[in-house]
Amino acid sequence: MNLRLNWIGFKTLLRKEVIRVVRIWIQTIVPPAITMTLYFIIFGNLIGRRIGTMDGFDYMQYIAPGLIMMSVITNSYGNVVSSFFGAKFGKHVEEMVVSPMSNATIIIGHVAGGITRGLFVGIMVTIIALGFTDLSIAHPLITFSMVILTSIVFSLLGFVNAVFANKFDDISIIPTFVLTPLTYLGGVFYSISLLPEFWQTVSLGNPILYMVNAFRYGILGVSDISIGYAYMIVTVFVVGLFSLNLVLLNRGVGIRQ
């Protein structure tokens, strides 16, 4: 593999993705800002005051890490799935397919775009959260690494969705019927210790629970699960999903006849 060629290819893809996010800011930046502000007002401020504390933190503080992570997950996924499927739909994916740039670079370039948007929106939501509550970071390294790893996982998942998607409906099915329920049930708004034992066990099968809790541990220092276990699960997802995408592209699934 020609490293220089692929490095320039990666930079080109990342640059293109960043320009795309900024160009369509009304679709990429504004909606999560509005949604998260509403979450903080309704769940945090209005309802949260009646709930009191959770794991020793007031409810607004408790849900802030989950809401930040939720926006990172949604935006990382959404960026990659819409960008790559858009390229397939408009046939300009062929620009990449005919080039000597490797399939790994195509994946990494799109994932980098997903991370960039995920982080950008995550930072914006953090700033919004700071307008409602005080937050300090208990473990900066865990916070930062977990947000990056989670963003990678959902960017890769978005890529898988885009590879298989044939029409626009196909890119909204997974976010609507899988991603949103798993995120809501992934401990964003509550500690799983509040659930009956059976549902606690069921919740442990939800990977988003580990990501949200590890991130919450990074910020607040409290978690329902083992942090080491969370890293292991996220790493397995990163390696597994990257390998899956690479196999799919090498076989030409969704991009070659």
Binding site: N2, R4, L5, N6, I8, G9, K11, T12, L13, R15, K16, I19, R23, G86, A87, G90, K91, H92, E94, E95, M96, S99, P100, M101
Partner: peptide
């Protein structure tokens, strides 16, 4: 097979990037 929303210059320069 080009991105119709992208400027002409970007389309050509991005393609160059894909070729290193």
């Amino acid at each position: 097979n080009m991105n119709m929303f992208e400027p002409v210059l970007n389309i050509v320069v991005n393609q160059a990037g894909y070729y290193g």
